[in-house]
Design a protein around this nucleic acid. Sequence first.
DNA 1: ATAAAATGGACTTGCTAAGTCCACTTTTAA
DNA 2: TTAAAAGTGGACTTAGCAAGTCCATTTTAT
Lengths: 147, 147
Amino acid sequence: MQISRSMEYAVRSLVYLASSNKPLSLRQIAKGENIPAPYLAKIMRVLVNGKIVNSTKGRNGGYFLLSPPQKIALYDLYILFEKKEKLLPCFENASFCPAGKNCSQKIVWFKIEKAVMDAFKKVSLKEMVNKNKLRKVKYERSFNQIT
Amino acid sequence: MQISRSMEYAVRSLVYLASSNKPLSLRQIAKGENIPAPYLAKIMRVLVNGKIVNSTKGRNGGYFLLSPPQKIALYDLYILFEKKEKLLPCFENASFCPAGKNCSQKIVWFKIEKAVMDAFKKVSLKEMVNKNKLRKVKYERSFNQIT
DNA sequence: ATAAAATGGACTTGCTAAGTCCACTTTTAA
DNA sequence: TTAAAAGTGGACTTAGCAAGTCCATTTTAT
């Protein structure tokens, strides 16, 4: 059981965005976070459609957060990138399980699932940004080299 | 993020075993839980090596729990079947992340990871067995047909 | 002896996450 | 007004690994 690379990239990109006071281009984010640019493009589209970020086209265009970091929960990203909200395969494909609907195991799985979801709901982007001003400075230096 | 099929099969097989008062053969479990027998064989080996069950060979051989169900936590299975105990890819492959070791995001990920692990630690096999005596009866009937 | 069981490990298959590519639109600086 | 720099959409490829198979071996009860 593991977080997808997409989700990880998304989180890192958003933290990166949250540390900036101006929109950042795909290239800037990709370079700064060491993420393959074409793949990041795909991820950013998901974030745009998911109303997490917005974008402007053309020269000087880029991406920016639509809400302040403390309003963006990791759970919001979870549902965008880990579509299978259900931890268990049997939830998706009930035919597998001979017990069908009257399965006492489900109750337990649901409990676990809820605990996991709650863990993601409790954390906002803000918790991931604040503590390292060092990184922010480093990144801003990188911007200057790029632009 | 999803539980592996292996883990699901393992849980179901163990619940099945917990409902029986005698050792059950691979075939019996596979049939009863509708799991491909050769694949289940692989899973049972992991459970034997992991000291969750024990086995006897030869005629009338089979598998049985090594501990009472309330002593077997889902977490014990988690560490056997979801080897990547770490939720995040970056934990495995630190080189990906430009922030390296001094990464404030890690602290947050660890929190989430702990919450997930705790959820699995809290649940024992017993919670998954008790409630459906119906299934037990049904299964025992199946045994009779098979043996 | 033989049939029924587990064991070990090499092998194949299939799914899907991860990543690429390209044609297109929008914007703006020169 | 045009060229370069940005995002968009979607089809496509690659690669890794979970899921599943197979077979040769060992063990044991009858």
